[in-house]
Design a protein around this nucleic acid. Structure first.
Length: 275
DNA sequence: TGCTTGATTGTCT
DNA sequence: GACAATCAAGCAG
């Protein structure tokens, strides 16, 4: 009850109920577009609207971590009830956040790839401007320190976030509310995890639980089907015939998606997912 | 136990 | 566009 009042005061939409997640990943992925992912930490609240996702559909999907029914320490949460957080580390330095889907204990998940920053933008900027640690907690004890390239100019409060380029040029060439500065806060699965301080500590948290620090609320308005674009998932070349399934979904023309310009409906931009 | 892979990102040319 | 960083997880022996 207290949590519900708190959310109401804070202006959050209603929490997505537990049953919302109890559906196949491909369906849940599209339903999550436009919802608000919220993380409350001792540092403060940060949130963003989900604008890009990928569906990973259980044991038969060769791109999924749970392919072939692999049940390991890492994938364990996917075999449990839906609506929980599946957080995993990749490349030894990044975290990725997934939502466990259903139904019936089928190990499916939805990878959240990009957010449109909504609350706590200054907090996100601070997090993105400092070194991230794979082993969350920020006590400085972890050895694997990742240097990011987003930096502040001198004044922290209102200073524009710049992308440091060779020669120290930086600056925002994009302009507007969705200029590159803000876009780079949460455009990409690892970036959004850093901005929202999502780490292995959040593994398994229930996203429907009012008292949970990591939750998903209804966002603004539901995204109409005509506004949802789809294409192949990123970085799953190893998945054979499953590689080309159009199970990456994003909000058409949204400037915060992670790979703009890659597919029809995207804005032109850097094609960072291509090699 | 040791080797390989990887749902990424940022740097440099 | 090429490539480095970096290490947990998975797997073979």
């Amino acid at each position: 009850m207290e949590a519900a009042k708190r959310d109401e005061r804070a202006g959050f939409g209603p929490l997505l109920e537990r049953a919302f997640y109890d559906r196949p990943a491909v369906e849940l992925a599209q339903a999550l577009l436009g919802a608000e992912l919220v993380h409350e930490s001792p540092e403060g609240v940060a949130s963003g609207l989900i604008v890009e996702v990928e569906a990973y559909a259980g044991p038969e999907d060769r791109a999924a971590h749970s392919r072939g029914g692999r049940r390991t320490g890492r994938t364990e949460v996917m075999f449990g009830p839906p609506g929980h957080a599946y957080v995993f580390a990749v490349y030894g330095m990044h975290w990725c956040f997934n939502v466990v889907a259903g139904p019936g204990g089928k190990p499916e998940a939805v990878l959240v790839r990009a957010l449109e920053p909504l609350r706590g933008i200054e907090l996100m900027r601070r997090r993105r401007s400092r070194p991230s640690r794979l082993h969350g907690g920020g006590d400085g004890s972890a050895s694997n320190v990742v240097k990011t390239t987003l930096t502040f100019q001198d004044s922290p409060a209102d200073a524009p976030l710049v992308e440091s380029k060779r020669g120290g040029k930086g600056g925002d060439a994009g302009g507007g509310p969705a200029g590159r500065r803000e876009r780079f806060l949460t455009a990409g699965p690892a970036r959004l995890c850093q901005a929202l301080a999502i780490t292995g500590a959040e593994y398994g948290l229930p996203l429907w639980e009012p008292a949970s620090p990591l939750r998903i609320h209804r966002g603004r308005a539901p995204v109409p089907a005509a506004q949802i674009a789809s294409g192949p998932r990123v970085g799953v070349d190893y998945a054979g015939e499953w590689r080309d399934r159009p199970w990456r979904f994003w909000i058409r023309d949204n400037p915060y998606v992670s790979l703009p310009g890659r597919f029809p409906g995207d804005r032109p931009g850097r094609r960072s997912g291509e090699r």
